[in-house]
Amino acid sequence: MSRNVITIDADASVIDAIKTMLSHHISGLPVVDRDGALVGILSDGDFIRRVEVGTEKRRGRWLAMLAGTSQVALDFTRQYGRKVNQIMSPNPITIEEDTPLEQVVQLMESHGVTRFPVMRDKKLVGMVTRTDFMTAIANLRLDLSSSSGNDDQICASVIAALAHAPWRPAALNVSVRDGVVSLRGNIRNDNARKATTVAVENVAGVKRVDDQLVKITYPPPEEDYGGGDFVSLEEEPSTEDDQPL
Results as ranks from 00 to 15, higher is better:
Asp152His: 08
Asp152Thr: 09
Asp152Tyr: 07
Asp152Ile: 06
Gln153Tyr: 10
Gln153Arg: 12
Gln153Ile: 09
Gln153Ser: 11
Gln153Val: 10
Ile154Tyr: 02
Ile154Arg: 03
Ile154Pro: 01
Ile154Gln: 05
Ile154Val: 06
Ile154Lys: 00
Ile154Ala: 04
Cys155Gly: 05
Cys155Thr: 14
Cys155Asn: 10
Cys155Arg: 15
Cys155Tyr: 07
Cys155Leu: 11
Ala156Pro: 06
Ala156Val: 07
Ala156Gly: 06
Ala156Phe: 03
Ser157Tyr: 02
Ser157Met: 09
Ser157Glu: 10
Ser157Gly: 07
Ser157Trp: 06
Val158Ile: 03
Val158Asn: 00
Ile159Gly: 02
Ile159Tyr: 05
Ile159Trp: 05
Ile159Phe: 06
Ile159Thr: 10
Ala160Leu: 12
Ala160Arg: 11
Ala160Phe: 08
Ala161Tyr: 02
Ala161Cys: 01
Leu162Trp: 00
Leu162Thr: 05
Leu162Gln: 00
Leu162His: 01
Ala163Asn: 11
His164Leu: 12
His164Val: 15
His164Phe: 15
Ala165Gln: 15
Ala165Asp: 15
Ala165His: 14
Ala165Glu: 14
Ala165Pro: 06
Pro166Ala: 07
Pro166Ser: 11
Pro166Cys: 00
Pro166Leu: 06
Pro166Thr: 08
Trp167Asp: 08
Trp167Glu: 07
Arg168Lys: 15
Arg168His: 12
Arg168Trp: 03
Arg168Gly: 00
Arg168Leu: 06
Arg168Pro: 04
Pro169Met: 00
Pro169Asp: 04
Pro169Tyr: 01
Pro169Phe: 02
Pro169Cys: 01
Pro169Ser: 04
Ala170Phe: 11
Ala170Ile: 11
Ala170Gln: 13
Ala170Val: 13
Ala170Thr: 14
Ala170Cys: 10
Ala171Gln: 14
Ala171Ile: 13
Ala171Phe: 14
Ala171His: 12
Leu172Tyr: 05
Leu172Cys: 05
Leu172Phe: 04
Asn173Pro: 06
Asn173His: 13
Asn173Gly: 15
Asn173Phe: 13
Asn173Tyr: 11
Asn173Ser: 14
Asn173Leu: 14
Val174Ser: 02
Val174Asn: 02
Ser175Cys: 07
Ser175Met: 08
Ser175Glu: 11
Ser175Thr: 15
Val176Met: 00
Val176Ser: 00
Val176Leu: 04
Val176Ile: 06
Arg177Met: 13
Arg177Asn: 12
Arg177Val: 15
Arg177Cys: 14
Asp178Ile: 11
Asp178Val: 12
Asp178Glu: 13
Gly179Tyr: 04
Gly179Trp: 00
Gly179Arg: 05
Gly179Phe: 05
Gly179Gln: 02
Val180Gly: 05
Val180His: 08
Val180Asn: 08
Val180Ala: 10
Val181Gln: 04
Val181Leu: 04
Val181Glu: 03
Val181Tyr: 01
Val181Asp: 00
Ser182Leu: 09
Ser182Gln: 11
Ser182Ile: 03
Leu183His: 02
Leu183Asp: 00
Leu183Val: 01
Leu183Asn: 02
Leu183Gly: 01
Leu183Met: 02
Arg184Gln: 11
Arg184Glu: 10
Arg184Lys: 12
Gly185Met: 08
Gly185His: 08
Gly185Phe: 07
Gly185Val: 09
Gly185Gln: 08
